[in-house]
Design a protein around this nucleic acid. Structure first.
Length: 279
DNA sequence: AGGTGGACCCGAACGC
DNA sequence: TGCGTTCGGGTCCACC
């Protein structure tokens, strides 16, 4: 599931291949990708656009063109990009779009579950679209323990549910939230507004540390996620809790438990992450 | 208004 | 072995 570290890894790989290149030919094979618009129409609009930058905001990839228009891509669950000198001869049933660049290389978009979206925005639409969906960028300086506290203040939802809300904080998904809460020694079902100052400082630190660790390992490949050159991430080897039911906690040896929070499978250490902390 | 659960997808894992 | 059922996860949306 591409979360911030996976999307950032993709961005870093695509950036040098795309900046300065034009979209020479675009084929959109799955109408879901651009609906309610017509695939042929969107493809036609994209052809001829030259890439000025490849950015990221939360889990969104942002392809900015020299015209000022923007292609906003969300990979959702299983979306991935593959950049290769030429399109693979092997036809992949899950390939939903292909962009041929003006240097002859191909950027292929693959998405097994078809949740991903491509949205072409006019220059004046971009900031508003992102601002109304996304909170602080966790690796930027303006994200602090204090700003985190402000976003969680008054929320009675479980802290995990609050952190999954992209308007509170941009980029966390089910995996990195569990990992961050383990590092911060906070139970995922604690009401967000009950966190104390020290817990908020630990959580702020843990979120940044775990996201940076994920980026350093090129993300986590559980099944579908790949980097644009076809490689796998290595962060899954460093998971402390996610998917580790009954495995001993790396900090205290207690078997990791699974529960549900925010409607998602949730793993935690019942000893390190007590629901009723002492302090 | 904030919080919760279902819908959208499809392959893999599971259960009998 | 085979086949039907369940699961999962990001975001949006309906509902309480």
């Amino acid at each position: 599931m591409p979360e911030l570290p996976e999307v950032e890894t993709v961005r870093r790989r695509l950036e040098p291949a795309l900046v300065g290149r034009s979209f020479a030919r675009v084929e959109i094979r799955d109408a879901r990708l651009v609906r309610p618009l017509e695939p042929a129409q969107v493809a036609g609009e994209l052809e001829g656009e030259r890439v000025a930058s490849v950015d990221r905001r939360g889990k969104y990839l942002i392809f900015r063109f020299e015209s000022g228009r923007v292609l906003l891509v969300h990979l959702r669950m299983t979306g991935s990009f593959r950049h290769a000198p030429r399109a693979d001869a092997v036809t992949d049933a899950h390939e939903r779009a292909v962009v041929k660049l003006d240097d002859g290389s191909d950027v292929a978009y693959r998405d097994v579950r078809r949740f991903g979206t491509w949205l072409l925005l006019e220059p004046e639409e971009v900031d508003g679209y992102l601002a109304e969906r996304l909170g602080d960028e966790p690796l930027e300086r303006r994200f602090t323990a204090r700003s985190l506290a402000e976003r969680l203040a008054g929320r009675r939802a479980p802290v995990k549910a609050a952190l999954l809300d992209q308007r509170a904080l941009a980029g966390l998904g089910n995996i990195y939230v569990d990992e961050a809460l383990w590092r911060a020694r906070i139970h995922p079902l604690r009401p967000a507004r009950q966190l104390g100052d020290d817990e908020l400082r630990r959580l702020h630190r843990a979120i940044r540390d775990v996201l940076r660790a994920g980026i350093a390992r090129q993300g986590a490949t559980l099944r579908d996620y790949r980097t644009p050159d076809g490689g796998r991430g290595r962060m899954q080897r460093a998971f402390r809790v996610y998917g580790r039911t009954d495995a001993p906690c790396d900090r205290c040896g207690t078997p990791i438990e699974k529960t549900r929070a925010g409607g998602r499978g949730t793993w935690y250490c019942p000893t390190c992450q007590p629901i009723f902390p002492r302090d």
